[in-house]
Amino acid sequence: MVMEYNPGIQLLRPRVDFDNQGYWDGIKQHKLIFQKCKYCGLLIHRPRPMCPRCNSMDMEWVPSMGKGTVYSWVNFVYANAAYPGIKVPYLVVVVEMLDGVRIVSNMYDVPPDEIYVGMPVEVVFDDIADDLTLPKFKRREV
């Protein structure tokens, strides 16, 4: 595993609320799901209470294909500007999913000197703690 955590410092837990509960429940079950407007079919991430296209409040959760490409990335190299719970260096990526939405995550198996915009990736699930599972990404063969 590329990313190393500093023991003793807790990672911030996501705030689960009425609007995003489905998403985080899915992650816990190792399923990447996105919000979809039942009325007009728009796929939405991050979760919202209302469809920004048709203003319907009727939403459902649909499974993602789990595949995408790296859209942008940054490499944390300076500890003071990084998250204290994670050892530098580490990568944070924005992945553009084939489903059509983007998601912020980490790379699971790619060291900083190999990352590039456009790298094909697929989702994996990282059980970091009993109460924290995160969707991460690994290199995908095309």
């Binding site: 609320d17 009425f18 609007d19 919202r48 209470p49 203003n55 409040m57």
Partner: peptide, 24 residues
């Protein structure tokens, strides 16, 4: 309310715009 404040906000703004005859 069993909802987030943002949910209530969106619901309410939409209704106020409907009341006026406007859209977002």
């Amino acid at each position: 309310s069993e909802r987030t404040e943002l949910y209530l906000t969106c619901q309410c703004i939409k209704a106020a715009l409907d009341d006026a005859g406007l859209t977002p």
